Simulated assay, not measured.
Amino acid sequence: MQKSFTLDRLKVGDRATISELSTTELPAKFFEMGLLPGCIVEVRHKAPFNGPIGLHLLGSNSLVAIRKSEASHIFVEK
């Protein structure tokens, strides 16, 4: 059984599968960018001082950056 936790807790180089998004806290642009349940993401970069997190979306081969506060509303499983 895999544990679910928030995306902001991943380290650089970690891969995980999105299991759930808090739709009341996140704007629709996240769904349009491809951040959907079942999507595999890899953390490519974490800026210091709680800055943005750079993600590689493996399904669409896209690179996106999101705020740490937004990443805390995305639940993933390793």
Results as ranks from 00 to 15, higher is better:
residue 66 I to S: 09
residue 48 P to T: 04
residue 43 V to T: 10
residue 7 L to A: 04
residue 34 G to N: 05
residue 42 E to S: 07
residue 22 S to C: 13
residue 19 S to Y: 08
residue 36 L to C: 07
residue 9 R to C: 03
residue 50 N to L: 15
residue 13 G to C: 06
residue 13 G to W: 05
residue 16 A to H: 08
residue 26 L to V: 07
residue 29 K to H: 04
residue 47 A to V: 06
residue 47 A to E: 15
residue 71 A to H: 07
residue 15 R to K: 13
residue 1 M to T: 14
residue 73 H to I: 05
residue 68 K to A: 06
residue 47 A to R: 14
residue 53 I to K: 06
residue 77 E to G: 00
residue 76 V to Q: 03
residue 16 A to S: 09
residue 14 D to F: 01
residue 11 K to P: 00
residue 57 L to D: 09
residue 23 T to W: 05
residue 4 S to R: 10
residue 4 S to A: 11
residue 18 I to Y: 05
residue 57 L to K: 11
residue 11 K to H: 10
residue 51 G to L: 02
residue 57 L to G: 04
residue 33 M to K: 10
residue 32 E to V: 10
residue 12 V to D: 09
residue 11 K to Y: 03
residue 66 I to L: 14
residue 5 F to W: 02
residue 9 R to Y: 12
residue 9 R to H: 13
residue 62 S to Y: 01
residue 70 E to K: 08
residue 74 I to M: 00
residue 28 A to T: 11
residue 46 K to P: 03
residue 52 P to H: 11
residue 73 H to S: 12
residue 54 G to E: 12
residue 27 P to Y: 03
residue 45 H to D: 13
residue 30 F to T: 04
residue 8 D to M: 03
residue 20 E to D: 12
residue 35 L to Q: 01
residue 67 R to K: 15
residue 44 R to W: 00
residue 3 K to V: 15
residue 20 E to S: 10
residue 62 S to N: 13
residue 33 M to V: 00
residue 56 H to E: 12
residue 14 D to C: 04
residue 29 K to F: 10
residue 59 G to D: 15
residue 53 I to A: 08
residue 2 Q to V: 13
residue 8 D to Q: 14
residue 74 I to H: 01
residue 23 T to N: 04
residue 32 E to G: 03
residue 30 F to N: 01
residue 6 T to Y: 01
residue 1 M to H: 06
residue 49 F to D: 10
residue 73 H to L: 00
residue 34 G to Y: 01
residue 66 I to C: 09
residue 72 S to T: 05
residue 64 V to I: 14
residue 50 N to C: 10
residue 12 V to S: 06
residue 46 K to E: 12
residue 67 R to M: 09
residue 1 M to W: 01
residue 41 V to S: 00
residue 32 E to I: 11
residue 46 K to M: 12
residue 3 K to R: 11
residue 1 M to K: 08
residue 41 V to Y: 06
residue 3 K to E: 14
residue 50 N to A: 14
residue 18 I to W: 01
residue 59 G to Q: 15
residue 23 T to M: 08
residue 24 T to C: 08
residue 26 L to H: 03
residue 18 I to Q: 04
residue 19 S to D: 13
residue 16 A to T: 07
residue 50 N to W: 11
residue 2 Q to S: 08
residue 21 L to G: 01
residue 43 V to A: 05
residue 78 K to F: 04
residue 68 K to L: 01
residue 72 S to G: 00
residue 23 T to K: 07
residue 44 R to D: 06
residue 36 L to R: 12
residue 55 L to C: 06
residue 25 E to S: 12
residue 4 S to I: 14
residue 59 G to A: 15
residue 9 R to K: 15
residue 19 S to W: 07
residue 38 G to H: 09
residue 73 H to C: 10
residue 1 M to I: 14
residue 1 M to D: 01
residue 40 I to R: 12
residue 42 E to A: 04
residue 29 K to I: 10
residue 61 N to H: 11
residue 18 I to S: 02
residue 30 F to L: 04
residue 24 T to F: 11
residue 36 L to G: 02
residue 9 R to G: 02
residue 38 G to F: 05
residue 73 H to R: 07
residue 41 V to N: 06
residue 70 E to H: 13
residue 30 F to S: 00
residue 11 K to Q: 12
residue 70 E to V: 03
residue 18 I to N: 03
residue 47 A to M: 13
residue 47 A to D: 13
residue 35 L to Y: 03
residue 3 K to I: 15
residue 22 S to Q: 12
residue 60 S to H: 03
residue 3 K to M: 11
residue 4 S to V: 15
residue 69 S to E: 14
residue 71 A to Q: 05
residue 23 T to G: 11
residue 78 K to I: 05
residue 20 E to R: 15
residue 5 F to V: 02
